[in-house]
Write a protein that binds this DNA or RNA. Structure first.
Lengths: 325, 325
DNA sequence: TCAAAAGTGTTATCCTTACACCCATGT
DNA sequence: ACATGGGTGTAAGGATAACACTTTTGA
């Protein structure tokens, strides 16, 4: 783990961060990518463009005042949708791409944005797709999906039984059990990214088997694919959001101004992919003083009319830690 | 909140992410910035370059295989230090900088890295500085630091009493109390970034008062300054690390291969800036099976010899959630 | 009267925190 | 003997999860 010879030879006086060698500009193009989430009739949904298999994105341009405003601009251009809450996800460097003057580095900065589907303006090419179209194994609201025991588990076990060292096989079985709640492990909805990466590593994701790979790739696990690594970015967003709703009041970005507690509960359940205990959920929300009654009740559907609530925006000043679990 | 006219006029057919307008390349230079943390005799420390007021950094170059390897390269060049654990912090766009051909966008990608101070090779310009030099109000290991009641609290209250609306003043007082544990609030060590931002907003940070500002800036709160926004990046790293040690076993990246439980406890305390209950800490660590006995005991110092432990690297496979609280 | 949704009360369990105390070793 | 660090037992308190049950409306 020592510095290799070349590095040592090159070392001269260390330079402070501002005294960088300016002999040559090392430029890259910068891409902004958005995972825009809203609740639709089909569940927790993500805004897609193109053939419904791409996240809205575009280059960071000189005219953009900031990264976030650049992102807002592209999403509005491509989907006619205004963004509210925005949070950065991750930055990564794509493989080199061939540009006009030889190879060109591309930096991609991904964001998670939350809105309401009705915020759209006009009817451009815009598509809401349930995120469970892309990750059918992530929806546990009606129990463990059959796809796990029917497809995911056997194929992961096959992968974990491939030739190799026994310790490698044991490690693979262990990771699979932990990520998907097999054997004695319990399901943890926040591991969405680990699950995707595990399937990817096992060659069970369509995007993973491309070009000159091995001779017989196993058939991929069901789930709509996306271009490039957009599905991985979506998995990152889902994991982040599932984690965040537990300690920050971000669900309300997805709610209409006025809602019932059951509607709020259904939203949380849709995001986390699992059911919650109704009486406890209501107590938790009211006890945290996240909402206040409007005084109105629902008149519409069947059943006893429910009180209507609105989010207490004041909690954003009062406390940092407050969420739905 | 509607799309403005200019935006609507510009809108044509929406483009998928790969069908971006390629008429003009929009390039930026990319900077990598590292917050390298280790435990030294002076407590939790950060690797500084220049006059001890800059984080190691350098441009992402074409020769770099990845963002992380570029970061490793720059840190090794500037400090002779090998990095182990690395995690991305945040990406931001600096204000435009004047380059050779007019203005030039600069993207900065910041990272948190954990190592041990002994990992250094050679003696280049390298400096470990306790992070409490930069944030003296963050060390609560020996009780609430006097600087809070003597300096921070009165100046924040003065700021919260400036002319303006009553609701603004109430909001400022509320934020100050919450962030610094004033009035009835309790201290939360994870709010390091919010505290820095609050002080910055109140004009109490030296870096905040530059150029043609108001007539009489108040004297800044004690604490070593850094160039540009490096101190803010450091605050981000501290907050991230303080949060992360609670649910991921990252402390061990800072420990020698073999250590006593008290040494581990001291490290956790140094990072979080507060003391922990010894018996409970030991039970927690052992119960989580994060460590295993080496069979050896310490022979050196005063007191009863302590058992030596090593980190069980296997837990990285077994579980994702495991930490020191 | 029944289904659907809104609610209330209470208990069991676990986790965290704190307190009290004993053990082993060197000066 | 006492200071320093290692180590065990146990109980109080709070948060979480679970179960049982009542209320209000529309079909």
């Amino acid at each position: 783990m020592l510095t290799d010879a070349r590095e040592i030879m090159q070392n001269q006086a260390a330079t402070g961060s501002k005294a960088r060698p300016s002999t040559k500009a090392h430029n890259a193009s910068v891409d902004l990518i958005a995972v825009v989430v809203a609740m639709t009739e089909h569940g927790p949904s993500v805004l897609a463009v193109g053939a419904g298999d791409a996240l809205p994105s575009g280059p960071f341009e000189h005219g953009h005042r900031s990264l976030q405003s650049g992102l807002r601009g592209w999403v509005e251009h491509q989907t006619g949708h205004q963004l509210g809450y925005i949070e950065q996800l991750y930055t990564f460097a794509d493989r080199d791409r061939i540009g006009e003057e030889g190879q060109q580095r591309v930096i991609s900065i991904s964001y998670l944005a939350l809105t309401r589907a009705e915020h759209s303006v006009g009817l451009r090419r815009r598509l809401w797709r349930s995120w469970y179209d892309f990750f059918p194994w992530e929806d546990h609201r009606t129990g463990v999906p059959t796809i796990i025991s029917d497809v995911v588990e056997p194929r992961l076990l096959a992968w974990a039984s491939e030739p190799g060292s026994e310790s490698l096989r044991r490690e693979r079985r262990q990771r699979a059990s932990f990520a998907f709640g097999l054997d004695g492990s319990s399901w943890n909805e926040e591991l969405a990214l680990q699950r995707y990466e595990l399937l990817y590593e096992a060659g069970l994701i369509e995007e993973a088997t491309r070009g000159s790979e091995r001779r017989a790739p196993p058939p991929p696990v069901p789930g709509a694919k996306m271009i490039a690594d957009h599905r991985r970015i979506l998995a990152t967003a889902i994991a982040r959001l599932r984690s965040k709703i537990k300690y920050r009041p971000v669900v309300f970005e997805l709610m209409p101004p006025v809602f019932t507690l059951l509607q709020l509960q259904r939203t949380v359940e849709a995001l986390s992919g699992r059911l919650v205990h109704k009486p406890n959920f209501r107590r938790l929300i009211e006890q945290q003083e996240l909402v206040e009654e409007t005084g109105e009740t629902t008149a519409d559907t069947v059943g006893r009319p429910a009180k209507l609530f609105r989010f207490r925006h004041a909690v954003l000043d009062e406390r940092v830690a407050a969420g739905t679990k």
